[in-house]
Amino acid sequence: MDPAAASLNATPEPTTANASHQTPQAFGDFYREHYQAIAGLIYRRTGDIHVTEDLTADAFLAAYKSMDDYRGQVPPIVWLRRIANNRVNRWVRREIGLRGILRRLPLISAFVPPEANSTQPRSAALAALLRLPIDQQEVLSAHYLEGLSLDEVALMLSISPAAAKSRLARARDALRRELAHQSPESRP
C-alpha cells in the first residue's frame, strides 16, 4: 500500500426536504436549539434527573440515526417530540413499571425547587399521572405540561384534533379519579 496521506472527507450529502438538519454542523445547532424543550418534556413526565439525561440523549441519538428517514412531513420539533415521547412511554412501560415508579417518587424532592410544600403536590400529581394509561399521559403532558394547542397535540400524536380533544377530556376525568383515590379523604 502506498504510504500516502489519505485525505478523507465523509460529509453526508443532504437528501431530504429538510436537509439543513442533515449536516453535522446543523445537527449540532439542532441539538442545542431543542435540548431544553426535549429535556424539559422528559423531566416533567419522569421526575428523575438521571432518567431525563439518559432519555434525552437517547432521543437525540434516535433522531440522529433516523435523519435519513425524516422527510419534513412535520416540523422538526414535532418530529423530535414524537421521538422523545416514545422514549418516555417505553421507559414507563418497560424499564420502570408502576412499582419502580412509586419507589422512585421520593427522589423527586431532590429535583424540584426547595420551596416549602412544593414537593408533595408534585409528587402526588406525578404518581397519579403515571398511573394513567400511556395515551392519556401523553395527551395531558403535551397539552398541559408542554403548552401545546389541541392542533399541535393532534399533530404530535398523529390523531385528529377531535380525537385529541376527546382523549384529553377522558384523561382529565381519569386523572381526577386518580387524585381522588389517593387523597386522604378518600382513604378509609
Binding site: Q36, R44, S118, R122, R176
Partner: peptide, 18 residues
C-alpha cells in the same frame, strides 16, 4: 384539583445546559 395537579406538573423547568 386536576388543574392544581397539572400546574404542579408543569412547573419544573429544565435548566441544565445542553
Amino acid at each position: 384539583p386536576v388543574d392544581t395537579a397539572l400546574s404542579a406538573l408543569a412547573a419544573p423547568r429544565w435548566s441544565k445546559e445542553p
